[in-house]
Amino acid sequence: MLGRSSLLARNLTKSLVRFHSHGGTPGENLPFSLQNRYKLTAYFVLFFGSGLAAPFMVVRHQLLKK
């Protein structure tokens, strides 16, 4: 029984690897494009800037609250 399940798992992983559409080009599996340098820079600034600014905005909100 153990041999049959491992054979089934091996065949499943082989088929998943075989039919996966990853061409091997860098950035193909990312949810954003790497082609436009300025758009990518804006995404990075917004993403990391919002994470950095959030604690300061929370503290400001708490200090201004009455």
Rank of each mutant, 00 (worst) to 15 (best):
L64W: 07
K14Y: 07
N36A: 03
R18M: 03
V45Y: 10
R60Q: 04
F48N: 11
V59S: 05
F47R: 11
F56R: 09
A42Y: 05
S33C: 10
P31W: 14
N29R: 14
N29C: 08
F32L: 05
K39A: 10
A54K: 09
A54S: 15
N29L: 14
H20D: 12
Q35L: 13
H22M: 08
T13P: 00
E28N: 08
G24T: 02
V58I: 15
T25Q: 08
F32G: 01
S5R: 14
H22S: 11
Q62H: 10
L46V: 15
F56G: 13
T13S: 05
K65F: 10
V59P: 00
Y43W: 12
Q62K: 12
L2I: 02
A42K: 15
L46P: 00
L40I: 01
L63S: 05
R60A: 08
L46R: 12
N11I: 02
L63N: 06
F44S: 09
P55D: 05
L7Y: 12
L8K: 05
G49W: 12
A42G: 04
S21Q: 14
N11V: 06
G27D: 02
S5P: 00
L7T: 15
G24S: 01
L12Q: 04
H20F: 14
L46E: 06
R18N: 02
M1W: 10
K39E: 03
F44R: 09
H61F: 02
G3R: 04
G27T: 09
P26H: 10
S50K: 07
L12N: 10
S15N: 10
G23R: 11
M1P: 03
Y43P: 00
P26Q: 12
R4M: 07
V45E: 05
H61W: 03
T25I: 04
H61Q: 03
S5E: 14
S6A: 13
L16A: 15
F48E: 05
R10V: 09
F48G: 04
R60D: 06
E28M: 10
T41K: 11
G23T: 14
A54C: 05
E28Q: 15
L34P: 00
R37Y: 08
L12E: 03
L63M: 08
G27A: 04
K65E: 07
G3Q: 11
P55F: 09
A9M: 13
V59H: 06
L8C: 08
S5D: 00
H61V: 00
E28C: 03
T13Y: 07
L64E: 11
R4I: 02
P31I: 13
K66W: 06
G24R: 01
V17R: 12
V59G: 00
N29E: 14
L63D: 05
M57V: 11
G51A: 13
V58T: 13
L40G: 01
L40K: 03
T25M: 01
M1Y: 11
S21L: 12
K66H: 11
Q35N: 13
V59C: 03
A54E: 06
L64N: 13
L40R: 03
G27Y: 03
R10M: 03
R10G: 04
Q62A: 10
N11P: 00
L46Y: 14
G3V: 06
K39C: 01
L16G: 00
V59F: 12
